[in-house]
């Protein structure tokens, strides 16, 4: 029991530490940065939840960013007619529709999910752009302040907490959650146990759509407008979520609670970035730092197995063969 409490507390140590570090070292960074940091972490967290559901099911999906935009366009369009309610319906509807599209493309084209997501990014961006034009927007989509206020600070914390609870219950307390994990681990075995992998995967896409919808709420409301781009730019929206998820999940041994870990991972990331910016990192360097960070984290996490193996080997070499 004591271990568990220490574990839970331990998880909060790193973000806390980082915050203190940057507050002390960097001028312009302090308690007043807190709302911005939290707000900025929330969107990648939501996207992170969406991607995590996919990862667990064994799928790779880089179209999550594009789906956020798609949902946002739909939401903004309906907000013009029905205000807040329209916005919510639009975002959710748009997100689920795009999720289903990707799901069915994956299911019936029978090609790797990664490839499907790449193709969908192209199609989805184009559809979002056309949709935006259709509803009278240009490349910037505006949301009336009366709507966006419900998703800005401090309400965004409520949304994220709610989403976190849903994520937790989903993974650890529902049938579909178990099935997603099972299919992701060993699809053939799951099939032998009576689970239907194709259906589980389609549902996984839909579930990711729920979190993408919330991300769309937050993203569109964050600055009051949404920018729709072409050319695959939306894929860059997955970098921060992926990093946050990886950072967070390394601590899974301390506390087996993925949603909280992901939230904290994103917060850490945002603190680091905002700290660097406050310390004088020019805007243009951000993308390079982001990219380098991502590759470093992926490189390290991908090679832990090899690392462990070489440690094992060096141990063995030191031992006496007779006692091996």
């Amino acid at each position: 029991m004591k271990n568990k409490i220490f574990g839970i507390l331990g998880v909060f140590v790193i973000p806390f530490f980082l915050f203190i570090f940057f507050s002390l070292v960097t001028p312009g960074f302090g308690l007043h940065s807190l709302p911005i940091i939290i707000s900025q972490s929330m969107i990648p967290t939501m996207i992170g939840f969406g991607m995590c559901v996919m990862f667990l099911c064994g799928l790779m999906d880089f179209s999550v960013g594009c789906r956020v935009i798609f949902a946002g366009v739909a939401g903004a369009a309906l907000a013009q007619y029905w205000g807040l309610v329209g916005f919510i319906i639009g975002c959710i509807g748009g997100s689920l529709v795009s999720a289903l599209l990707v799901a069915y493309l994956y299911r019936y084209l029978k090609i790797p999910s990664m490839v499907v997501s790449l193709g969908f990014v192209l199609i989805g961006e184009a559809l979002s752009y056309s949709g935006a034009e259709l509803f009278g927007f240009t490349s910037l989509i505006h949301i009336p302040p009366s709507v966006s206020v419900w998703f800005a600070f401090p309400y965004n914390i409520l949304w994220v907490t709610g989403a976190g609870i849903v994520f937790y219950l989903l993974l650890y307390h529902t049938k579909i959650g178990f099935h997603i994990i099972a299919v992701g681990e060993d699809e053939l075995l799951a099939k032998n146990m009576g689970v239907i992998p194709q259906n589980v995967k389609t549902i996984a896409y839909l579930l990711s759509g729920v979190f993408i919808a919330i991300a769309a709420f937050l993203q569109t409301s964050y600055a009051g407008f949404l920018s729709v781009t072409l050319g695959g730019g939306t894929m860059a929206m997955v970098f921060k979520p992926i990093m946050g998820v990886m950072i967070g999940l390394t601590l899974i041994r301390l506390w087996n609670n993925s949603p909280v870990l992901i939230i904290l991972g994103e917060i850490c990331l945002t603190i680091i970035f905002n700290g660097l910016i406050a310390a004088g990192l020019p805007d243009v360097f951000q993308s390079i730092v982001l990219g380098l960070f991502l590759l470093t984290i992926l490189g390290i996490s991908g090679n832990t197995e090899k690392f462990r193996e070489s440690i094992r080997r060096s141990h063995v070499r030191k031992m006496d063969p007779a006692g091996y």
Binding site: I181, A182, L189
Partner: peptide, 10 residues
């Protein structure tokens, strides 16, 4: 089954 029949993550 002869092969591993359990899921590590459950």
């Amino acid at each position: 089954l002869q092969e591993k029949g359990t899921f590590d993550n459950l």
